[in-house]
Design a protein around this nucleic acid. Structure first.
Lengths: 190, 190
DNA sequence: CCTTATTGGAACAGTCGTGTTCCGAAAAAG
DNA sequence: CTTTTTCGGAACACGACTGTTCCAATAAGG
């Protein structure tokens, strides 16, 4: 029983393997199972015990990450308050996800590993907020919702890179991120 | 003689291999040489004749792409005219590079394949333009040059993705890209 | 404390990609 | 047209990774 009886021990090593997989695959998508096992401090055999095939591990990792993204989206309570503030909140929640978010971002193929649809519920929720912003008159009406969502991801990515390449603090990067996103999508003061 | 006597034929297949490598590796970084050979309409043996080892092919591809980026940067004549317009020009030049640009963008390891420094001449030229914009008072002084450069890449990336996922025309995407970049980095009308 | 679940390691077969060699065919160059 | 260059395909050895099996050691749980 894999999911039926998650005894403490079993669940713990499962997490250790998933964490190690994320860490190792982030640096090198083609890394071997032996690498992941080493990082997890676990025998290679144990990995196969939890995930019969490599693809099973990838699928589990994908589902894990996408679940985290969905959870972060929910925490942002997108349907509450002004659209602009909702986008601020979701940016911060996403940013807190850290490494996992960028692994998902840089490997869109992840949706092929899992049984997820290519357009997630999060995507739709974001689009709805932007449309609310259009209705409020706070978001530039000349920018399509899909484009604004794309920008949100792009700016978040820039912020993440900024922390890595310019050793900027998370807080500094987030401040720049929010300031820039706001300016770029705000309705022109007409 | 590899580079000494580039007879027409040899140079042509070399290009075909590099083009195929870009196309195939863009979809799957771990693709095999056989895949690349097939895409190029060439025998696998021929690839090894031009590039003894896989790493040689990657290095050649990396150099090829980075050369194209440098050339595009020069065409933009960054040192001429107002900073904002210079950034507009460079955005358009980069965007025209298409697939190759994103391969380089998504595989920063590319600099490890080649003998390039991690910070290219293009990077420095872009930073100088931004600082000129700061001096002119046209670029938001609260945004560090490194951040503005990061934004430029991020917005370009968003535009590229926009054409692929939302089947937007290159022109539409470019318009959104330039409009958004301008707004995001412009000095606040103080 | 005793039973059961979980693990680590060794060993093995099978697959896939790489790099090399060799030879005949085809294309280019003169 | 003849010579030289370039190419394609087959065959091979080699190494790396995968997935499996088996057994002994260890940790967890009752």
């Amino acid at each position: 029983m894999d999911t039926a009886a998650p005894t403490g021990a079993r669940a713990r090593t499962r997490r250790a393997i998933l964490d190690a997989a994320l860490s190792v695959l982030s640096k090198n998508v083609g890394a071997s199972l032996a690498d992941i096992a080493a990082e997890a401090g676990v025998g290679r055999t144990t990995i196969h015990r939890h995930f019969p095939e490599r693809s099973d591990l990838l699928a589990a990792l994908g589902t894990h990450l996408l679940d985290q993204i969905e959870a972060a989206t929910q925490r942002a309570r997108l349907e509450e308050g002004p659209a602009m503030e909702a986008l601020d909140r979701v940016c911060q929640e996403y940013f807190e996800l850290g490494e996992g978010l960028w692994f998902a971002f840089e490997n869109p193929q992840i949706t092929e590993w899992t049984d997820w649809e290519s357009e997630t519920e999060s995507d739709r929720a974001l689009a709805r907020v932007v449309e609310r912003g259009h209705a409020e008159g706070t978001i530039d009406p000349e920018l399509p919702a899909a484009w604004v969502v794309q920008m949100l991801w792009a700016v978040l990515y820039a912020a993440w890179q900024h922390t890595r390449e310019n050793s900027a603090s998370r807080h500094t990067a987030m401040t720049l991120c929010l300031r820039t996103l706001r300016k770029s999508i705000a309705a022109t003061g007409a």
